[in-house]
Every structure is written in structure tokens, then in C-alpha cells.
Amino acid sequence: MARRAVILVLDGVGIGAAHDVAAYGDEGSDTLGNLARAVGGLRLPNLGAAGLGNIAPLEGLPPSPAPHGAWGLMEPRSAGKDSTTGHWEIAGVHLAQPFPTYPQGFPPEVLEEFARRTGRGVIGNVVGSGTKVLEDFGAEHQATGKWIVYTSADSVFQVAAHEETIPLAELYAACETARAMLVAPHNPSRVIARPFVGTPGAWQRTKNRADYSIAPPEDTLLDALMAAGIPRTGVGKVDDLFARRGLEGGHTSGNAEGIAKIREWLAHGPNGLLFANLVDFDQAYGHRNDVPGFHQALRDFDAALPDLIAALREDDLLFITADHGNDPTTPSTDHSRENVPLLALGRRVRPQALGARSTFSDLGATVAEWLGVSFRGRGTSFCTSLVG
């Protein structure tokens, strides 16, 4: 079947509170809505023409009278609000319990076991940003050779090491060790290697980051496509989020490189699926409460969208969505429990309202049907009504 589909995740670009937002303490979060008010109106003409302003009221982006795509929103059903959970739900897997987080740091027994298995001590064990952690512990790390272990509001076990103090290979091996030992109840969704260079007062994290994710507990859309022999390509961190199962990776340094790789795949890629994540909205701007930066990143994507649409073949579908919210206007720098936008674009797409889908998994089910596999996961396909 000569068909292709793109799932393009704008990381953290939520579109309003989910039905259970109070359970997550995220009342008032509305990433796109609050951002629009904060900047005096969104300036996203191409996303507006695709139907973004038809999904929910957004200042500066009135509903289009004739969108050229289909539009709707998707509600989260899995417990949690992290990237792993959101991407897994898109791919058909629901989680009953969220991944554990560690607002007080990791239990002593976890760090003692990590130190025993890796042969190095541990410092840090704090909740904080990577840059602040390096300021506080970088010099001590270099003097002692101990790992810097820290976490964030996300479910992550992060290990930082200076590349001249501990070789990259040893850092990666330590993170693989951590991934193997971190099982329930202490099973954070990701172990992250955070190498850095520099000197006190001038530390710099390098591009040699590596993520070690927990594997999905059930078959996903990617597994079904792999079993059917249908090619699957990743852009950004998606392969990490699926523990590199069923997806050929394509790591990127930011949105610009990610968009370039998407454009390249549209021009030359095989049939099958491209699963892409553009992380800057979340990583560079949402977590830093950078309202102007967040809006500019959206404007940059908006400017690139016409070229992506023009590159679509007759039997291509492009879906634009998100994995959770990350409202840069709220005091919190954490992810937020939000609905996510859903835009469907392509030459065969019938412009229409897709409504409020009850789970992100409806998207994975739709892609599965479009690509000719029987997998539906926990979702319901809307493929038949979407395409003509």
C-alpha cells in the first residue's frame, strides 16, 4: 500500500484544561489560550488556515470560515502528563498509574544501589534545572569523580558527568545500569545521561545527551507496523520514548533541525510512518516560562508549515498534535494536564470538525487504518470519515 502518514507532535502545546485537571493541580493552565492572551493575540496565519482557531477560542486566531484541514482536540485518558505517557497513548497504550516523581529526591536505597553497581559515589539528589545543578555541584563532581544525580517535576533519573572527568562510554553504561535497576515502585519513565563540559562559572551541557526509557508494557502502533513490514522513521526524541522499539531514530538538536528532517522525509522518505517530535516549545520555553520564546517558536513552525503541506503526496496524511501542555504563563514550570490540538492535513482530507476525541489513541488507530493494519490499540479510528 503506497501510503504515508506523519504524526507531528508539538511538544507541550496543549489547548486547554483536561477533564481531570484538578487531580493534577493544574487548574488555570491553558497553554495556547493563555499564551494568546499574554502576547496580545497569536500570529499564526498558516495554522489558522488549517483550522487551529476552530478548535477553541484563541485571541488573534479567529475561526477560519473554510479551513483546508480537519480539526478537533484529543483528551488524555492515561494517568500522567509526561512525554512518554502522551506518546504512548497516541500509539495506543493507556497507563492506569502515572510514572513516579520524586519531589524530595530519590530514596537513599536507590542511590546506594546505583553507587554500588557503578563503583562511584553520588552527589546532588535534588530537584532542579540542569544549569542550576551544574552551578551547585559541578566543581565537587570534578574534584570527587562522583555522579551528579538529580530529577525534575517529570519522572526522570538524570545523571550528569563532565566529559573530561568521566568518559562518555562510562556515563552511558551507568545510565544503562540505572535503567535496569529502576523497577517498580521506583520505575521513572526515563533515565537521562547529561554530559557537560567547561569550568566553574562556565559549564555547558553538550549534545551527547542520551535517554533510556522504560519499554511500553503492551504492543503499540509501532509494533504493529513493524510486524507488517511497514517502515517507521523517527524525528527528535520519539525513538527514546519507545525504548528504541519499532522505530529508527533521528535525533535532532532543536525545532529547526527537526523541521528540516521532516521536510527531507516528505521529499524522499519511504512509504509508512514518520513519527516526529519538536521539543523546543516544551524544553526551551515552557519549562523556562519564556512566553515570547514560546510564541516565536510557534511562529517559526507556522512559517515552515506551507512547505510541509506542499510536499505532501496524494496519499500522505499529516497530523499535527501535542503530548501534554506546558503553559509558560503560569507560575509552574512543570507540564500541565491538558487536551491537545488535532489537525489533519492532506490532499485527500475532507475539511471537517473532528470533535473532542476521548483519547489520544484515536490518532494511532486512524494512522493504523490508513496504513492498512488491523491494530487499533485503545482508540477508535476516524479514517473513513476523514479521507475521500
Rank of each mutant, 00 (worst) to 15 (best):
L343K: 03
H335R: 04
S374Y: 11
R190Y: 01
V156T: 13
G53T: 11
L222E: 09
H295V: 00
R347S: 12
T101F: 03
H87P: 01
A297K: 05
D223K: 04
E112W: 13
K132V: 14
G286W: 07
V21F: 02
R77N: 04
D323E: 11
V191C: 08
S381E: 13
F375E: 11
V387H: 10
T233P: 06
L305D: 10
A56W: 01
G92D: 05
T321C: 02
I148A: 04
P107W: 03
L274C: 06
G377Q: 07
G130L: 03
S213G: 13
E113Q: 08
G80H: 03
A228H: 07
G145K: 07
A297L: 01
G51N: 08
Q352R: 15
V133D: 09
I148F: 07
I15M: 02
E170V: 14
R120P: 05
V183D: 14
G293H: 06
A160Y: 11
E176F: 05
A161K: 07
L317M: 06
V9T: 15
D307C: 01
A56S: 04
D154H: 14
G119A: 00
A91G: 03
R347F: 08
A184G: 11
T380V: 11
F294G: 08
R244S: 06
A210M: 12
A143C: 04
A173T: 15
G249P: 15
F275W: 12
A227W: 00
A224L: 12
A202I: 13
Q97M: 09
T359D: 12
S29A: 15
V191K: 11
T220E: 07
L95P: 06
D30M: 07
E112M: 11
V279F: 14
S83D: 05
A322D: 07
V340D: 02
T329M: 00
D136A: 14
T177L: 09
I320N: 03
R43K: 15
L225M: 06
E170F: 06
P62L: 05
P65H: 02
I55Q: 04
A368V: 15
K261N: 08
V127D: 08
V291W: 10
K146A: 13
T85D: 02
